[in-house]
Write a protein that binds this DNA or RNA. Sequence first.
DNA 1: TATTACGTTTTATCTGATATATTGGTTGAC
DNA 2: GTCAACCAATATATCAGATAAAACGTAATA
Lengths: 268, 268
Amino acid sequence: MVKRRDGETTELVQTKVAPIPLSPRSRRTPLGAAGPIAVAGQSVHAAVVQEIGLRIVRGDYPPGTILPNEAEWSDSFGVSRSVVREAVKTLTAKNLIASRQKIGSWVEPREYWNLLDRDVLTWYAAAPGNRTFLKTVQEFRAIIEPEAAALAAERRTEAEMETISAACREMGTASTLSNRAAADTRFHLAILKAAGNDLLLPLGAMIDSALLQLFTFITREANDIRHAQSLHEDIEKAIRLQRPEVARRAVKRLLANTDEFINRPSAD
Amino acid sequence: MVKRRDGETTELVQTKVAPIPLSPRSRRTPLGAAGPIAVAGQSVHAAVVQEIGLRIVRGDYPPGTILPNEAEWSDSFGVSRSVVREAVKTLTAKNLIASRQKIGSWVEPREYWNLLDRDVLTWYAAAPGNRTFLKTVQEFRAIIEPEAAALAAERRTEAEMETISAACREMGTASTLSNRAAADTRFHLAILKAAGNDLLLPLGAMIDSALLQLFTFITREANDIRHAQSLHEDIEKAIRLQRPEVARRAVKRLLANTDEFINRPSAD
DNA sequence: TATTACGTTTTATCTGATATATTGGTTGAC
DNA sequence: GTCAACCAATATATCAGATAAAACGTAATA
């Protein structure tokens, strides 16, 4: 149905972008000649998915554009058509593209994209002004997390509480930043889970991605970390005491604190 | 990493479930004998994805279970290995399964599943007590939609407002239930879009699914529909007048009204 | 005992062929 | 000249079979 072709844009698109770059494995090139240079330590499939996905999210192929056909991808990446097809299926499952016989594959409208998917979000984060991305994420978290915490305060089981508390504790005692980030992620995920609504769980991937992004550019003085820690402990306490409204407000305070970091005119 | 095998469970799983049923196309069976009975008007790929996905979400293969290998799927469905592999990629993209060489494919923990995906949600809705599902969806909507409406009231452009108003209008004048449901969906989607946060957009699929489910079991008297219509108009008005708080409350009223339907001890 | 080597199994990737559907043009009738 | 029916070209969809790579378990070895 949606197949507006954008005139010459398509032409531009179909320009052979680059002969090769991709993840190797055992390209049987006669003699190291043009050994596939790069790349990711991943599989060929994952590399192709990532490359096409990144280009789409980055805007190389605007929504509605007809993509190069399978044979062309196959040539330009130097992989078999099977790999291309499987990559296409993967991207289709994430709603980035769709395809039909005789037409080919095209880029779906942005509102179809499953931005909450871990991969898509990663590509998205890498694309435009990083600052905008973090603001978008924070705004979204501000919608979800206070309510999730409130629900968790009402419903958490003892086991779930223990998971939350343990994560909070480990945040305090973590020796490295990445350990702390991991515990932080676990903390928020545990709350989402304790909220007892299955539809909240998939949002964990987003928080995961977001925290990763955050920690790659915060790295502030210990002062702030201590403050952040106490904010986390407030949340833990409210959930432990089963005070939904208190939990809700505690999460809002934490998010407001994080917002401050993002809006500081330092980095970028 | 995650590969707990659950002892005998695996055995049970690997039982050849059924020789064939699947979508046909041109199975070259010598003589109509055992022509592939069913099925979906979809492609073979889609049918395989749906069958495996449904079984997983339904609980036939609990998380951690090692699934039958590609050759076995291929045999039992009577399709080529390529189709099976592409189906596996699709399900992997939705985080239902994962796979590794020599191990095979296994079912991921439920908290990994991308329940917000249209397909997964459909399978999920078909699986357990339908009633529980609708409650889960409504609870989730209650978290998202009031805030989305408030944001929309702040930020909507004139064009977005027109889309919202048009959908609301068409809800009122729709002649058939399915037309009304379509306009209803458009209405909620337009608000999500007008909220101006990209991360909210993927949630449209869920609302879509939810409304579909709702309308398949409501079909009440015109009285209620008129009430629902005025509730929708309240939302439209609040967004038009750019009153975030009013919009938020109006959405809450609408959702509360919907909740009533669901909790009525009539159907089911 | 610990460690290395190897064989087995399953996914990963490649190759090449056939089937099917849809578009766009062409032909022919009215 | 308009419109319907036909036909060819082209892209995905599906099939078939082969080889590569990785990981587990086991046996051989130091």
